[in-house]
Amino acid sequence: MRILVVGASGATGKQLVKQLLNKGHEVIVIVRSAESLPGSWQNDLNLTVVQASLLHLVEERLEEYVQDCQGIVSCLGHNLTLKGIFGEPRKLVTDAVTILCRAIRKNAPDKRVKFVLMNTTGNRNRDLNEPASLGQRLVVGALRRLLPPHLDNEEAADFLRTHIGQHDQYIEWVAVRPDSLIDQDEVTGYEVYPSPIRSPIFNAGTTSRMNVGHFMASLLTEDETWQRWKGKMPVIYNKEPARGKK
């Protein structure tokens, strides 16, 4: 399978690419700096590294990279610095999703391309009646106004929901919503739900980046998993140990 990953230099993107390469898939990554990638990837013949700014790529070049890809993943996010949060591009994720989907449509593939977006459990799926307390709605409303990355995440998912929708000729999609991200050295048990089972603001759970990478890889490579979640915004949590056990 040929898969394009953007945001591959991030902590979660690296986990995804690692797992795809371990499964023997052909992976293309678009990164600003190849130096940010693990040295162990340099000699992997299944990896193609494109060093470029995604948002500044000429359309024809992007269409070339997207061509013949059966899957595309965006693990893009804003750096947690003042410049990353408040500087340009404020709509990094939304703009990336938009131009990637446009490139897919320009290529008019014979088979629908799987598009996976890494999102956040703080973003509600507006296709469902997901409950939220008044306190949570107030906090999220403030985040939407004060922190551009939160609004960017919302708009990126909304683009897939409303502009691509459920019956696009060329694209199928899943927006994966992890809760508070943590680092772990291996894949552990995790659970996936259609909607949050706890408040992301007042009772957040945890999700390891390794588990997010594993779930996204499973979406791309396992048809049963894809058919279950396509057109949805699944929420992923680390599985909590049973009470009385460590």
Rank of each mutant, 00 (worst) to 15 (best):
T221H: 03
K232L: 07
R161K: 11
V5R: 09
M233C: 14
R112G: 00
L146Q: 03
G165S: 15
V58Q: 10
V27I: 10
R144L: 07
D127R: 14
A11D: 04
A34C: 04
E240N: 07
M1C: 03
L62G: 05
S53T: 15
Y193W: 06
N43H: 09
E64I: 13
L16P: 09
L219F: 03
A175D: 03
Q42Y: 15
N211A: 06
L138Y: 05
L45F: 09
R177I: 03
F115K: 08
E26F: 09
L143H: 11
L146W: 04
K246Y: 10
C101L: 00
A217S: 12
Q70G: 15
S33N: 14
N129Q: 11
K111D: 02
H25N: 11
I85M: 12
E64M: 03
L76Q: 13
E155K: 06
F115G: 01
D152Y: 02
G244L: 04
K245H: 12
N153R: 09
D179T: 14
D158N: 08
I171F: 01
G231P: 10
P89Y: 15
E59T: 11
N211D: 13
C75R: 08
V66D: 06
G244D: 00
Q42C: 03
L151E: 12
P178M: 07
H163C: 10
I164A: 04
K14W: 01
D95H: 06
T225G: 04
S53A: 13
D223F: 00
L117R: 01
H150D: 03
F215S: 04
A132I: 06
K91P: 00
K106G: 11
N129R: 03
E191N: 10
E63K: 13
L100F: 00
S180T: 07
P149L: 10
P178Y: 10
T225K: 01
V235R: 05
N238W: 13
V6H: 08
Q136K: 05
M210W: 08
D158Y: 10
L117F: 02
G77V: 08
A242V: 10
M233I: 04
N46T: 05
G39Y: 14
T162I: 09
V140D: 15
D158L: 14
L117K: 11
A52N: 14
G7M: 01
N129I: 15
T120K: 05
P178R: 13
L62T: 08
L37I: 11
H150R: 06
E60Y: 06
K14A: 02
L134W: 15
T48P: 00
T120E: 11
L37F: 12
A217W: 02
K91R: 15
G141T: 14
K239A: 15
F115V: 05
A175R: 15
Q19A: 03
E88W: 13
I164D: 02
N123A: 12
I164Y: 04
E63M: 13
T207C: 01
L160Q: 03
E88G: 10
H167R: 14
G71V: 11
L138G: 07
L100P: 07
A11I: 02
F115N: 10
N79T: 14
D127N: 07
K245A: 03
V212P: 09
H78A: 07
